[in-house]
């Protein structure tokens, strides 16, 4: 299958400069980006076998001696392309704060406890039908320095590859109904409401495990459409 990657789809992305998110001001390019045709360099990308993730890497609650504190959850979904076709065998990496809203990263000095039983990193490779599944705990909201009384809504960071280097995506998954949404410039940097809501997972009663964990579904759509021979 040959894929193409319409740049028009990128209108769903945030602008690089979004002054409400203050760190963008000194870090966004100011000169015009140069538009170039997609060559083999852009149309290719790394391939991952199932060796890219080890069994157990997708369960963030079993990486240490004991179980982490917090609300155990299942996060699952499908990785699709713009034709809604599954993206099989692609690497999905996640990282997140613990249930108290604290990251293990040395730079995070938020006065909330670290959990010795939780690192907060996971990875998996999608199945033939593009599905993935993680078991983790629900991350807490955390404060940050962007503006007075700024708090990030609960989120899980996602990193994906897809069919080519141009389909590479780093995003964040949010939880439905978070009261912090209206106040978060990172979430609102996606100015189109429908596009913004595609970053919000859905509570998934069918995927819950009774007596054990509730579930959230997060489908991810990466750049890429199939080019039929006729379109070529």
């Amino acid at each position: 299958m040959t894929f193409f990657f319409p740049t028009g789809s990128l209108r769903a992305f945030p602008s690089r400069l979004y002054p409400d998110y203050k760190s963008t001001v000194k870090r966004a390019p100011t000169k015009p980006l140069v538009t170039i045709p997609h060559t083999l360099s852009e149309l290719t990308g790394p391939v991952f076998g199932h060796d890219a993730a080890q069994p157990g890497d997708e369960d963030l609650t079993r990486q240490h001696q004991g179980e982490p504190i917090g609300e155990r959850i299942i996060v699952h979904g499908r990785v699709l392309d713009e034709d809604a076709r599954p993206v099989p065998h692609t690497l999905v990496e996640i990282w997140q704060a613990n249930a108290c809203g604290r990251y293990v990263h040395v730079v995070d000095q938020h006065p909330a406890p670290l959990d010795p039983n939780f690192t907060g990193a996971g990875r998996t490779v999608t199945d033939q039908d593009g599905t993935y599944k993680f078991i983790t705990v629900r991350p807490g909201a955390y404060p940050w320095g962007n503006h007075h009384n700024a708090w990030r809504p609960s989120h899980i960071h996602f990193s994906l590859f897809g069919h080519a280097f141009v389909s590479r995506l780093v995003t964040q998954m949010y939880f439905p109904g978070d009261p912090l949404f209206p106040f978060d410039p990172i979430f609102n940097s996606v100015t189109d409401e429908a596009a913004r809501n595609r970053m919000v997972s859905a509570f998934d009663l069918d995927a819950t495990i009774p007596g054990w964990a509730i579930a959230f579904r997060f489908d991810i759509v990466l750049r890429g459409r199939n080019q039929t021979p006729m379109e070529r």
């Binding site: 789809s9 990128l10 769903a12 992305f13 945030p14 998110y21 699709l80 392309d81 713009e82 034709d83 809604a84 990496e93 996640i94 990282w95 704060a97 990251y103 293990v104 990263h105 730079v107 995070d108 690192t119 907060g120 990193a121 996971g122 960071h157 990193s159 995506l169 780093v170 995003t171 964040q172 990172i186 979430f187 940097s189 996606v190 429908a194 596009a195 913004r196 595609r198 970053m199 991810i220 759509v221 990466l222 750049r223």
Partner: peptide, 16 residues
């Protein structure tokens, strides 16, 4: 299908 928007990698990506 409409693509999922990008978000920043943030300051804490390194451990993951």
């Amino acid at each position: 299908a409409a693509i999922t928007p990008s978000q920043t990698v943030g300051p804490y990506f390194a451990f993951g």
